[in-house]
Design a protein around this nucleic acid. Structure first.
Lengths: 140, 140
DNA sequence: GCCTAATTTATAACCATTATAACTTAATAA
DNA sequence: TTATTAAGTTATAATGGTTATAAATTAGGC
């Protein structure tokens, strides 16, 4: 992790520990939408004392600071995305890989909710089968 | 439950037990998006031997037959919707009530996924605060 | 009414996530 | 540099929704 980034995190009140730096390094540019366990497994290789609880608390802190998204598109477990730019996701229900798709247009609330329900976040959820899993299923 | 409905369910291979009829009666016209526990509590009042497991297996069977939707908009638990017409949902993150909204337009996949990723289901997820919960929060 | 596969039930198991509490440490200031 | 302390780490237990198990019961076709 470069020194400039360290200042950034300290300035937002995010204390940098070796464990956190290892997690941040793993997330840097990561487009695989990893789960907590994925992160744990990756970081534990080079940091054997890592605990799963640390992953959860660190990701929770990063989320609060707005540095990571917590995806809900996988019904089985939380998935994290360091790309916080507005975009949506499709998940393959077979291999559970998640792909990025562009952000959709604005959501239309019905008249009965317009100006009444205050929207905090909205996004599109898409489930389907990726090419590889379609092929595998076809062979069966 | 009316007799015509009984034939309908038998014809699709859905064996009608007293427990299932009680669940179906509770779901009939229900717009409250109940959880498994909600269903259990409601049915157990008039059917004390009801088991939570029965609710889950029954709802799973109804879902397979396409007679109920399993909503994922509440990250804490499954919520069920007997209205299978295409529509979306908004959830109040405070009181956890779910409101219906009209179906959104079609989802645009990026070129890299068009014709490759086969979409099985897609919908919009919206989280926010309902009027009542906004008011309560403002008072604090 | 019989038969059988399906359903119900209580209970245990599962698994992702969170809570707990003792120990350790990063970051600040003297 | 060192002391201070609030914050982070860790192992472990607890939580809670959901699923699996296996024995007892039953709906629906014959």
């Amino acid at each position: 992790m470069v020194s400039a980034l360290k200042y950034k995190y300290r300035n937002i009140g995010f204390k940098l520990t070796p464990q956190r730096i290892a997690i941040l390094d793993y997330l840097e540019g990561n487009t695989g939408h990893p789960s907590a366990e994925d992160i744990y497994n990756a970081v534990a290789k080079k940091f054997p004392t890592m605990s799963l609880a640390t992953v959860y608390t660190t990701m929770g802190a990063l989320r609060e600071k707005g540095n990571v998204l917590e995806l809900k598109v996988d019904p089985d477990k939380k998935r994290y995305d360091p790309n916080t730019a507005k975009h949506n996701h499709v998940i393959c229900i077979s291999c559970k890989r998640i792909f990025d798709i562009p952000a959709a247009g604005s959501i239309d609330l019905p008249d009965s909710l317009t100006g009444v329900f205050s929207v905090l976040e909205s996004y599109v959820e898409v489930r389907g089968l990726c090419l590889e899993c379609q092929t595998v299923n076809a062979k069966k």
